[in-house]
């Protein structure tokens, strides 16, 4: 972090402005071919365009004053939980259709546990087995979620 006074810009607010303006612009681009219609007969493009324009406007109102405010950093990003959890979820989605619930659930719990560096292997494996059994019993057997338990 730089010393106060040397840098300007409220980073969380600038990020907010970036998000709002970015999403607003994306929406405008994607709804450009939609019919705007008239007030009496609104086309499918009416609301999206209005909402996107408002969103861009709000983004500007948030962003411009933030440029001049004293520097304020964003909380540090730690890549480990972010990446591990996302990979675990996406992996679960593919595994559950191709390899069945048991494999997918084991994968999710074991990989997901890597997001926290403090875990011990014994606990993780026990937890994975327990949760998988619980999930198979409650969700698949009792509640009837349509998932094969084992690889086909």
């Amino acid at each position: 972090m730089a010393a106060p006074g040397t840098q300007r810009g409220d980073r969380p607010d600038l990020l907010t402005a970036g998000l709002f303006i970015g999403i607003g612009m994306l929406g405008l681009v994607m709804s450009r071919h939609l019919d705007f219609g008239s007030l009496a007969r609104m086309g499918p493009g009416f609301m999206p365009r209005i909402v996107c324009l408002l969103l861009v406007a709000v983004g500007l109102i948030v962003g411009i004053p933030a440029l001049r405010r004293p520097a304020h950093a964003i909380e540090a990003v730690r890549a480990r939980p972010l990446v591990v959890i996302t990979v675990a979820i996406v992996g679960f989605a593919f595994a559950v259709t191709h390899f069945g619930f048991v494999a997918a659930s084991l994968w999710l719990v074991i990989t997901g546990s890597l997001a926290d560096p403090g875990g011990r292997w014994r606990t993780v494996l026990l937890l994975a087995a327990g949760l998988t059994a619980f999930g198979a019993l409650v969700f698949v057997k009792t509640l009837g979620v349509q998932v094969p338990l084992w690889p086909l």
Partner: peptide
């Protein structure tokens, strides 16, 4: 550490 894998599974 023991809770979040369960929440993760229920979410999925």
């Amino acid at each position: 550490r023991l809770l979040y894998p369960a929440i993760l599974l229920f979410c999925c």
